[in-house]
Write a protein that binds this DNA or RNA. Structure first.
Lengths: 104, 104
DNA sequence: CGGGATCCGGCTCGATACTG
DNA sequence: CAGTATCGAGCCGGATCCCG
């Protein structure tokens, strides 16, 4: 029988680093597909799409489609998505605290 | 020119979920290779080895080899590794807070 | 503009066998 | 016990083309 493991549960949401980076960008406000693609360095359209789908399915991100031409889609964090911000903050703080390049 | 990004810096250490799970197990104390293999469900020996190497190279884990027969190797967290515990704790807390199975 | 569909190379990973 | 070596499958991700 499998016990519930909070850490593994959290990790199941944070499948890849892209998930984290997307959430970070969206934590500053809603963004369109193109904007996300530009802000997240190195992500391909395919991977961005897949990750956004995943985030949407897991209720971390809300996808709002405007029925206009040209198409317009906005992504924003759900409440659940926002609740991950303390985790990101903790990770960011660790990065700052342990950055070896800061005084070079 | 690339700016320093604390979040991406942290993510560069947390390459896979295995990294997190290994650190979690070692946060309870030093462990041998076999013990880690048993405690971390689903990890293969090869992947465990690779992740331990990575952790060692990045100074998150200390590898102590006892020159005995049969071989004995103990892994433990370095100070840097221990400093990641708040991140794990934050992730664990999120898992607890958002666990949908808890009252089923 | 925001994707979906497809092709395809590379790397990851699991399984197995072997070693000091 | 604690790995290394090898092989092979599978998935990930990039590039490209296409569509509403």
């Amino acid at each position: 029988m499998e016990e519930f493991c909070p850490l593994e549960y959290t990790l199941s949401f944070i499948k890849s680093k892209w998930i984290i980076l997307i959430i970070r960008e969206l934590s500053f406000g809603k963004l369109r597909f193109n904007e996300l693609e530009k802000k997240i360095n190195g992500i391909s359209q395919k991977v961005l799409t897949a990750n956004l789908r995943f985030l949407e399915e897991n209720d971390l991100v809300y996808r709002k489609v405007y029925p206009v031409v040209p198409p317009k889609v906005e992504y924003s964090l759900t409440e659940l998505g926002k609740s991950l911000e303390p985790v990101l903050k903790q990770m960011t703080e660790w990065g700052i605290a342990n950055n070896k390049n800061k005084s070079s």
